[in-house]
Design a protein around this nucleic acid. Structure first.
Length: 585
RNA sequence: GGGGGUGUAGCUCAGUGGUAGAGCACCUGCCUUUUAAGCAGGGUGUCGAGAGUUCGAUCCUCUCCGCCCCUACCA
């Protein structure tokens, strides 16, 4: 062990890495006791040592089925069967996994710790390539740089006897390594050859350009930082299986570098949005995710339970009602970018949890929101795409201002060949029926007009288009139009046939708001499935005085899908929800 | 929810009523500027799960499960 340790320390000095000695040499840190000590409260506070959380998560377990863990009848059986299970697990491992585990054991028995704690690299792959190009300018084609330290995942290896070419991959890209036995010496060279694809290593060496022209690190020393126990997906075709790409996104990210770009762009979109809003005087806030009433939209919520309060809570379906409470409290420009949850269907444009931007600005109205939304979207397109237009799934999208505008009722009237402002409910139902569209029960004039719009117009709105003047019936939180009480001061922004943003002049008449909630309750009673719930606490806030306010919501995931040219929302959500896989039916 | 497609080696995919193949990966050997390295040898698999038909099923039938697409609901 002593010799092995010395070798490791030597390697550590060479590479300036901070390798921890093997576990056996540092008993004080080799167990879980270390981290737990840090969680302990000071001794003079009595017996308050760290303990596991008292309440286990029994979410979803019927009360009748709950019992102490020790009382569960199958616990003993599981404990007794453990060794058998482990053998079964071992037998189920693939040959490659077994080989890698054996290799791991061999390394440990030789005194090499295959999982180190730190490696100080000097350059990323991209920085190293740039460095070489700079040096090459001065010294010409035969240039060699000073040694650099690089780290990454081994993704390709071409062993050619006494020399090996390999590639490591880091966040910035890939870089080639050249490993020669006469640089490393026989034992160390053999260790390199024994590495597996997927292992994470650190290397040190100078940079040069090969005959074929690739900038390459001539490895003088290397260290294994983390052994991979499972093989990588195929190097040429990448990982194609959509199910695996989603369930094991990390493999997708390793094997398909363009996937990383999507999530980097997603982060940039959020950052640009924040910067844009901050520059306009908006303050970012956070409001409850768990809510006693799931309001701000008409959607089915997910439900959860809080043990200490012993109340059921809903996962929020919108940010709206709490942000408005902040406006009541005197905030004049607020926004939140947060996850919301809707317990509904999943398809290419719908996800059970998604990220919404909502913002509220006092003393402005829907037209102020329209200006802001148009400016924000045009700004994001410019910043992300570097242009005023972009391509989405083969369709060219022109995001130059001003975006098109369309009155919802006008558009639906034109598409249906009838002036819907003058049409009555039976005629609207007939228009829908003629087109084999089944109108949901309980819909009135506004709901049916909205239905006609969605069926006949929405899909055709490929270019950015503001649709204005939604019916009151489908807008329980939007201010009524002064010149037509059936409509509201509202707009939605459509791009590529999908709704991206939704905004309106907020209701600041608490009595009107109460009446709207009551309308919603009536709609529910006559069969509408999703209606806005009554929220007395919110009404109380409005009754204290709510300034004229414009509000807007924007779907970050959908916008990201557009700006990254991804066909579905799943492609811009790192870990999309999927059904659990069952071994047995 | 309804319709269609799909599931075969670690990955990408062929294929057949007589228990299975290719490329990459992997294992053995050779190879010191290669790059989808190459050459020689090796198949490592509950053919998604269960039942049925059959002498025999990965293939045919039924049921179930996952995933994808369309459709319905929601944004």
């Amino acid at each position: 062990m002593g010799i092995a340790l010395a070798g490791l320390v030597l390697a550590g000095r060479l590479l300036r890495l901070h390798a921890r000695p093997p576990a056996a040499a540092r008993p004080e840190r080799g167990t879980r006791a270390g981290p737990q000590h840090r969680l302990q409260r000071p001794r003079n506070h009595g017996q308050h040592r760290w303990q596991p959380p008292r309440y286990r998560c029994d979410y979803g377990t019927p009360a009748s089925a709950r019992q102490p863990a020790s009382a569960r009848p199958d616990d003993d059986r599981q404990a007794a069967g453990r060794s058998v299970d482990l053998r079964a697990v071992e037998a189920e491992r693939t040959e490659q996994e077994q080989q890698r585990r054996q290799k791991l054991e061999r390394l440990r028995s030789q005194g090499t710790e295959p999982y180190l704690s730190r490696f100080d690299r000097t350059h990323s792959s991209a920085e190293a390539l740039a460095l070489f190009v700079e040096v090459e300018k001065e010294k010409g084609a035969e240039a060699r740089t000073e040694p650099v330290a690089l780290a990454g995942r081994l993704v390709a290896s071409r062993v050619m006897g006494k020399a090996t070419f390999a590639h490591i991959q880091d966040f910035a890209g890939r870089i080639q390594l050249h490993v020669k036995v006469d640089k490393l010496g026989e034992p160390k060279y053999q260790q390199f050859v024994d590495l597996d694809l997927g292992d994470i290593i650190g290397v040190r060496g100078s940079l040069f350009r090969t005959r074929r022209g690739e900038v390459t690190c001539e490895v003088e020393d290397f260290v294994l930082l983390a052994k991979a126990l499972r093989p990588l997906p195929e190097k040429y075709h990448g990982l194609k299986d959509v199910e695996v790409r989603h369930r094991q996104r990390y493999l997708d990210l390793i094997a398909n570098p363009e996937v990383r770009d999507v999530f980097v762009t997603r982060a940039r979109i959020v950052e640009e949005t924040r910067a844009f809003l901050r520059a306009r005087g908006f303050i970012e806030v956070e409001t409850p995710v768990l809510q006693p009433i799931a309001g701000g939209a008409a959607a089915r919520p997910s439900i959860t339970h809080h043990n200490a309060l012993d109340i059921d809570l809903y996962m929020r379906i919108a940010l709206e009602l709490y942000l408005k409470r902040l406006i009541v409290g005197g905030f004049e420009r607020v926004f939140e970018i947060g996850r919301i949850f809707r317990n509904e269907g999943i398809d290419r444009w719908h996800s059970p949890e998604y990220t919404m931007l909502e913002l509220y600005q006092a003393y402005t109205d829907w037209e102020g929101m329209l200006e802001l939304t148009e400016a924000l979207v045009a700004h994001l397109v410019q910043r992300i795409k570097g242009s005023t237009s972009f391509s989405y799934q083969g369709e060219s999208i022109d995001a130059r201002r001003p975006f098109a505008r369309l009155e919802m009722v006008d558009a639906a009237s034109q598409a249906s060949g009838r002036d819907l402002l003058k049409a009555e409910v039976p005629e609207l139902r007939r228009l829908l029926a003629e087109r084999q569209i089944e109108a949901r029960p309980g819909l009135g004039w506004g709901g049916l007009v909205n239905e006609l719009f969605e069926e006949l117009v929405q899909d055709r709105l490929v270019q950015p288009t503001f649709v204005t003047g939604h019916p009151v019936e489908v807008s329980p939180l939007a201010r009524r139009r002064s010149d037509d009480p059936r409509l509201t001061d509202r707009f939605e922004l459509f791009i590529a046939g999908t709704e991206i943003a939704n905004a309106f002049s907020e209701i600041n008449d608490p009595l009107d708001q109460r009446a709207r909630f009551e309308d919603q309750a009536r709609a529910r009673a006559s069969g509408a499935e999703e209606t806005h719930p009554m929220d007395e606490d919110f009404l109380t806030a409005l009754e204290h005085g709510f300034p004229p306010t414009g509000g807007m919501g924007l779907g970050i995931d959908r916008l990201t899908a557009l700006l990254t040219d991804q066909p579905t929302l799943r492609d811009v959500i790192a870990f999309p929800h999927m059904r659990a896989r069952h071994a047995e039916p």
